[in-house]
Simulated scan of single mutants.
Amino acid sequence: MSFKHCLLAASVAVMWGLNFLAIDFSLEQFPPFFLVALRFAVLAIPALLFVPKPDVKLRWIVGYGMGFGLLQFLFLYWAMAAGMPAGLASLVLQASGPFTVLLGMTVLRERVRGSQMAFLIVAMAGLSVVGWQRLDSSASFLPFLLTLAGAFGWAVGNICNRQAHSVEPVKFTMWMSVVPPVPMLLLALVVEGPGTIGQSLTTLMTPTGWLGLAGLAYTVVIATILGSGIWSWLMSRNPAGVVAPFSMLVPIVGMSGAWFVLGETVSLGEMCGAVLVIIGVLGAGMRAAIGPKIRAEVVPTGVEDVADVPAGTRC
């Protein structure tokens, strides 16, 4: 992987890490369920009008949209609106990596090497430490559980993405965005109500409204279109196991940015848990990168297992 490509991968990690701050700003203006609908509607409209449908089965587009799009961001935005710190959310969401492997084992009957499972256990132990630190009150533990649910939704999306075998990742991502807006808008109308939604739209010209719009624009343009586009380009030109570990810079950027901009702090226990999560997910990703190289020498083309799936990538 060239130095230029390394810089690009690191820049994407910065974009995605700062995205959690953008989400935090947006949630100051918009209710969480409506914000999810708005985020994906902005992507869905141009996708339907200008982007040809990718050559994959419809069920995988729907599955990816339901998992990666709807479930992940429903629970993530709900968690952050309920008090989950932006920096800590960027860390806990990395549980999508272990969840993806577990789903691959149970649903797709894929094989996992013992060394990779050991690193995943380390990552889960780190998440347990963070959760234990959040047990001081239900007000802080519930957002933690909601973020974990969002990570599980991301993992479901990863499995659908894998099964789709799309060779047009940008088109696939754009068309996935068609799935969440309508169900999320209906959910927002029922749970948050037309009054709350209307107030968030009629107060856009306030300072908070401008920040909310800026956060939404950053999420759509920088984090999703630009960041995901660069990441897909890198993944198509480099081994997945070499690119994927750069995603572990996301929680480092997210937690650092939240500390610098929002004044968020973490306890010593949470920091120890964060280190375990990063070591575990990064180690599992590196073991996954080694696996395909070994199997390429001894296994016929077409044989796959879960080690081919990078732990976690997008947000």
Rank of each mutant, 00 (worst) to 15 (best):
L93K: 05
S128C: 15
V178R: 06
G153K: 00
C160R: 11
V130Y: 04
V112M: 14
V156I: 15
V122S: 05
Q94W: 03
Q116V: 07
L76F: 08
V62E: 03
G131A: 11
V178I: 06
S166M: 11
L71E: 11
S177H: 02
T100E: 02
A151N: 08
M66A: 14
S138D: 08
V62I: 13
L76P: 02
F99S: 03
L148W: 03
P143S: 01
M80A: 03
N161M: 13
G157H: 02
V167E: 06
G131D: 05
V112A: 15
F99V: 10
S90V: 00
A95D: 03
L108K: 13
Q116N: 05
S90Q: 03
K171Y: 11
G97M: 03
L146C: 08
F141M: 07
M117Y: 12
P52T: 03
A164Q: 12
A123T: 05
G67P: 01
L142G: 02
Q133K: 14
R162S: 10
M80D: 03
D136V: 13
K57T: 07
W154I: 08
V156K: 07
A164V: 03
V129L: 07
M117W: 14
R111Q: 07
S177V: 05
N161Y: 11
M174Q: 08
L108M: 15
W78Q: 07
G69M: 08
V62A: 14
F73E: 00
T147V: 12
L71I: 15
V62C: 04
D136H: 11
L58I: 10
M176I: 05
F50P: 04
M174F: 15
F172M: 13
L70D: 02
V167L: 08
K57H: 10
I121R: 03
H165G: 13
Y64S: 07
L120A: 02
L120Y: 06
S115I: 12
L88S: 00
L127H: 00
L120Q: 06
L76E: 04
W154D: 07
M66I: 13
L70E: 06
L74K: 05
L76G: 03
V156W: 11
V122F: 02
L76C: 08
R109I: 14
G114S: 11
Q163C: 09
S138L: 14
V179K: 02
V170M: 15
A86H: 02
L146K: 06
F141N: 00
L108Y: 15
L146E: 12
F172E: 08
F119P: 00
S138F: 06
A151P: 10
L148R: 06
L58Q: 08
V112N: 06
L103T: 15
V179C: 02
A151K: 05
A155C: 10
F99M: 11
P169E: 12
F141I: 01
Q116F: 07
G69N: 02
L145E: 03
D136E: 07
